[in-house]
């Protein structure tokens, strides 16, 4: 149920497509989610998880196969124009008219949001200043760098002062400096303008940095929702200590001895096949690793290394992974975000 603090309410949203061979499949499967006013809500998931399809339905671009989404209480299927008036859009691709100038692009889309006259002109000036392109406003955007185009792309979304800003992977394909600028802009939208931001990304680091809450998505389903802290808590806030041991095998007795170190909750041995290097008799070399989980991994590390050496385990390298969204995703889905 929509409350005064809810900006977006999604219930049972699903979308069915047909594969190239004609087989129907659901790209989004009965998604439920609520986004509160004034928060940055991120959908995190690998490419193909269904993030863009989900927000395309919320934004009224794609008609849902079933279910509905409400923006500010307006149903996107029944009151689409009212819902869209509250929505600012920053699509994944740079959606600008290349032969128009930055100002002309802003004015064009401003008019499409019902703005006109002096109010439009004044607002365009403000937005140009906000995106730091006042001095380039009369240049055609096809002459702009990728980062500058991204800023105009964001500026158009901001023009009509939307209550909800939809940003679909806005940092894809740009340099670190412009990425930093965009992330700062997202934070300013919330902090200075009180906007609600629906943000999608497959980059764990930026989602972790800016999000108030995160929905982890995979195979068209929301796997978990919460703050970054809440999600990490779900996997027990344990550090992961990874010891690479090459082709050496490790016995269960050796693993049990390692588990006796204070703070260690579990120790496992995994073998994975390395990529073939074209040498040898054709069989793939084995990459063995011992994975220990501990509440305070760095404190347990010296004892683990010492015990392993004493027990004849030759450690080739050590990696400490503190709990993050990547680990959460791995824990929830059994695969990495970048897989």
């Amino acid at each position: 149920m929509t409350t005064s603090t809810t900006m977006v309410e999604v219930r049972g949203l699903a979308k069915q497509f047909k594969a190239a061979n004609g087989t129907p499949f659901f790209a989004v499967k009965d998604v439920d989610l609520d986004i509160r006013k004034g928060e940055i809500y991120s959908l995190l998931g690998p490419n193909g998880a269904g993030k863009t399809t989900t927000i395309s339905m919320i934004g009224g671009l794609i008609a849902p196969t079933r279910g509905d989404a409400k923006i500010g209480g307006y149903s996107i299927t029944k009151q689409p124009l009212d819902a869209k008036r509250l929505l600012g859009v920053v699509p994944q691709e740079i959606a600008l008219y290349p032969t128009l100038t930055a100002r002309q692009n802003l004015e064009f889309f401003g008019r499409m949001y019902g703005m006109s006259g002096a109010a439009l002109k004044s607002r365009v000036d403000e937005v140009l200043e906000f995106i730091d392109l006042t001095d380039k406003q009369n240049e055609r955007v096809d002459k702009f760098s990728g980062g500058m185009k991204r800023r105009v792309n964001i500026g158009i979304g901001l023009l009509h002062k939307p209550q909800l800003m939809y940003m679909d992977e806005p940092t894809v394909g740009i340099d670190p400096q412009n990425r930093r600028r965009i992330l700062d802009t997202v934070l300013r939208m919330r902090d200075e303008f009180g906007m609600t931001v629906l943000y999608t990304s497959h980059l764990m680091e930026e989602v972790q940095e800016i999000s108030d809450r995160v929905g982890i998505m995979d195979h068209g389903e929301i796997m978990a929702i919460g703050t970054v802290g809440e999600l990490i808590q779900k996997i027990g806030e344990e550090d992961m200590l990874i010891f690479r041991v090459g082709t050496q095998s490790v016995s269960s007795v050796q693993l049990e001895r390692l588990k006796t170190v204070e703070g260690v909750t579990s120790v496992t041995y995994e073998q994975t096949a390395k990529a073939a290097n074209g040498e040898g008799n054709g069989s793939l070399p084995i990459d063995g690793r011992v994975v220990a989980r501990a509440k305070r991994g760095r404190q347990a590390l010296p004892d683990l290394i010492g015990l392993a050496n004493a027990d004849g385990i030759e450690i080739q390298s050590v990696e400490v992974r503190e709990p993050d969204l990547e680990a959460v995703f791995l824990s929830l889905t059994g695969r990495a975000l970048r897989d």
Partner: peptide, 14 residues
């Protein structure tokens, strides 16, 4: 192809 049509559709324009 360049996404401007999608952007227009997501504006309050029939």
């Amino acid at each position: 192809k360049d996404g401007t049509l999608q952007r227009l559709i997501m504006s309050p324009t029939p």
